[in-house]
Design a protein around this nucleic acid. Structure first.
Lengths: 345, 345
DNA sequence: TTGAAAGCGCTAACAT
DNA sequence: ATGTTAGCGCTTTCAA
C-alpha cells in the first residue's frame, strides 16, 4: 500500500541507495538530484517504515517507561517530563501501566525487549524480593534505570528523592503541631522507597523522644480500598493516632473517606499529610498538606541518565541521582483541638 | 547479542524453518524435535525480535491510542478498558498523549503509521475544522475509530455517549433544582461532542421555557486555568448565573477554585455539575454531582469496533456506537438558598 | 556522485 | 517431517 523506497527509486529512475541517501540527509547527493527526489517524496507523502529501518539500523530510538499506576497523576507528570526530554533528543517514549502487578510488569519488560526499545525506565511495582532480583535479567542487558522507587541495593542507575528525609520532614511537621501518636500508612516495604519512608518516620519520632509504636504502622497496597480499610481498622484501635502520614496520594483519598465515615473531622480531630501533589490536592476537603516530589523533573532526569548510560561504552558504575522535595502546608494538618482523645464509633 | 533463530538452528543442527515452526506452533513438527527445540529455546530464553517478525508478517498486532489528556483519569480509565480488551485478543496497546495539541496529535498519528500499528483509536484533540478534515488522510487508510469525541459528520467509525442527552439531563437536573440562570462551560465546539453538549443544554432550557442567554455560554480549553479565568469573568457579570454545567472534569477544578476565591459557596450560593467521574469526585468540596460516562466500556467497545473494522474486507459503512451514561447526584447541586442574588465582589 | 548488492531476524512458500 | 530459499523495507558497505 504505502509507497516504499524501492518503488520510488524505480519511478524516478534512480537507485534505492540514492533515495535512501536523500531521506537520511547524506551530503554527497547532487543538489539537482536531491531536489528531484525530495519533490517526489513530498508528492507521495513518503513515510519510512520504522520496522525496516530499526531492524537494519539495530536501534529503534524508542525508550519504554513502565509505571505502576497511570491513573495516579504523579506518574503522568513524570511521564511527560521524560517524554519531553526524549522527544527533544529524537527519541520516542512508550509508556506502559503495570497496575502494581508483577505479571503485567514482567510482560511489559519482555515486550519492550522484543520490540527492541533502546532503553527502559522503570518504576518497579511492589513485588517479592525474589521477583525484584529477576528484573535485571529480564531486560537482558538493555540499559535500564529505576525511577522513583528502587530495589534495596540495586546494580543499576537510580533516580529518586531522599525518601527518608521527606518522610522525616512530614513526620516532624506533625510533631511540631503537637501530635505524639502519629501513624504511617505505607506501601509494601519490598522497595527501597517505602523502606526509606518508614525509616524517616521512625527516625523523626525517635529524634523527638517519641517511642515507635508498631501498632501505628500500616501497610497498604496503594489502592483506595486498602487505605479505606486501614482507616477503619485504625479508628477501631484502643488508642488510635491523632495524625498520619500517608505515603501515596491514592491511598490518601481512601483514608480520608474512612475518616469521614467515622465522623472524624480533618484537621480538627485528625491531621493528615500526603505524598505527591495532584490536581485535586488543594480541592479536596480539607486542602491537603503534601510532600511534593518534582515529578516532571524526575522523568526528565531519569531519561537523561538513561541516555547517558546508553551512550556509555566504558561501563561506568551505577549512579544514584537524588532530587529535592518540599513540604506544601495546607489545611489538613493542624494542632489538635481536644488533645489526646478523638471520637471513635 | 540476543540469540537469533539462525544461531539456534545452527546449534541444534536443524533448519531455521523447523525452529520457526515450533516457535509458531505449527503442527507438523515431530514431537521429539519439538521437545528438543523447545528445551533449547527455554535454555537460552529466546525472545523473538518483533521488528523482524512484524516486518515479515506485515502486521504488528499493535494498536495505537491517542488521548488528549492522560492526566485526566477519564482517559486512563478508557485506556485500561481498551488495553484489557486488546490484550485478551493478542494485541498490544500503545498510548500517546496529545495534550490537546494538534501538532502533537499529528506527530503521533504519523509515528503510529511509521511504526505500522495495525489500527488507531483516536480521541481527537480540539482543532480547526481544516485540521480535523486532514485526519483521515494522515492515517493513510489505516483502520481508525474515533472515541469519545468525533468530527461533525465523520466518514469513520465512532464510539461515544449521547452527549446531547447527557447535557440535557445535566441541565434539566439544575432546572429541577429551581435554577433559571444556568451557565455552561464547554470545550471548543470544533468537535461533535462539544457541539452536542451545547445543543443538549440549549434544548433543556427551551424545554423548560427558559431563554438561552449567549452570555451564559463559556468556551474553555480544557485546562484548569481557562476555567478559572471563566469563573472570574462569570462572577463579574452584571447578572451571573446561579448554576453551571462544566463539560470537563479538569475545568471543574479550575472553576471551583474561582468560586472559592470569590467566596461563593457551593452549593448554597451556586450549583455545579461536572462531566466524568474521577477518583476525587466524591472527595472534593463539595462532593461533585457528575454525569458519569462508562470510560472503561468506551475503551473496550472502541477496541472491539476497531478489531472488527480491521478484520472487515467488505468495506462495511462506518458505524456509530452510542453508550449509556448516568447522573450521579452528590452535594454540589442544590436548591438556591437566597434565590436570585449572589454576592459578587 | 551514483548504483549494486548484502544483509538486519524472521516467516512462509516451496522443495525434498 | 524437515530443509532451502526468497523476501519484508530499509541502510550501508563497496564498487563504479
Amino acid at each position: 500500500m504505502a509507497a516504499g523506497i524501492r518503488s520510488i527509486a524505480r519511478h524516478l529512475g534512480v537507485s534505492v541507495s540514492t533515495v535512501s541517501a536523500v531521506i537520511n540527509g547524506h551530503s554527497y547527493v547532487s543538489p539537482e538530484m536531491r531536489a528531484r527526489v525530495e519533490q517526489y517524496l513530498r508528492e507521495v507523502d513518503y513515510q519510512p517504515n520504522y520496522l525496516a529501518r530499526s531492524l537494519r539500523r539495530r536501534e529503534t530510538r524508542m525508550v519504554g517507561l513502565i509505571v505502576p499506576d497511570l491513573a495516579n497523576s504523579f506518574y503522568t507528570a513524570l511521564s511527560r517530563g521524560a517524554e519531553d526530554f526524549l522527544l527533544a533528543r529524537g527519541y520516542r517514549l512508550i509508556v506502559a501501566d503495570s497496575r502494581e502487578d508483577w505479571k503485567r510488569q514482567k510482560d511489559y519488560l519482555e515486550s519492550f525487549c522484543r520490540m527492541m526499545t533502546d532503553g527502559i525506565l522503570l518504576v518497579p511495582s511492589s513485588a517479592t524480593k525474589a521477583q525484584i532480583d529477576r528484573i535485571p535479567g529480564l531486560v537482558r542487558g538493555r540499559p535500564l534505570v529505576y525511577v522513583d522507587r528502587s530495589p534495596i541495593k540495586s546494580p543499576v542507575d537510580v533516580v529518586l528523592i531522599d525518601n527518608s528525609a521527606a518522610s522525616f520532614a512530614a513526620t516532624r511537621h506533625l510533631v511540631e503541631r503537637g501530635h505524639r501518636r502519629i501513624g504511617i500508612i505505607t506501601e509494601p516495604i519490598s522497595l527501597l522507597c517505602a523502606a526509606d519512608r518508614l525509616e524517616g518516620y521512625q527516625h523523626a519520632l525517635k529524634a523527638s523522644g517519641i517511642d515507635v509504636d508498631q501498632d501505628l504502622i500500616y501497610i497498604g497496597n496503594n489502592t483506595k480500598e486498602s487505605a479505606h480499610e486501614i482507616g477503619q481498622r485504625m479508628l477501631s484501635q484502643k488508642m488510635p493516632p491523632t495524625a498520619a502520614v500517608v505515603c501515596n496520594n491514592i491511598m490518601t483519598l481512601g483514608f480520608l473517606s474512612a475518616l469521614r465515615e467515622r465522623k472524624v473531622d480533618v484537621p480538627e480531630d485528625f491531621s493528615v499529610i500526603g505524598f505527591d501533589e495532584c490536581d485535586w490536592s488543594e480541592h479536596i476537603h480539607p486542602p491537603l498538606t503534601t510532600i511534593r516530589q518534582p515529578a516532571a523533573e524526575m522523568g526528565a532526569t531519569s531519561a537523561r541518565v538513561l541516555l547517558e548510560r546508553m551512550g556509555d561504552k566504558k561501563e561506568t558504575p551505577p549512579s544514584t541521582t537524588v532530587l529535592g522535595f518540599d513540604l506544601k502546608v495546607r489545611s489538613s494538618t493542624a494542632v489538635l483541638a481536644n488533645c489526646g482523645s478523638i471520637s471513635t464509633a
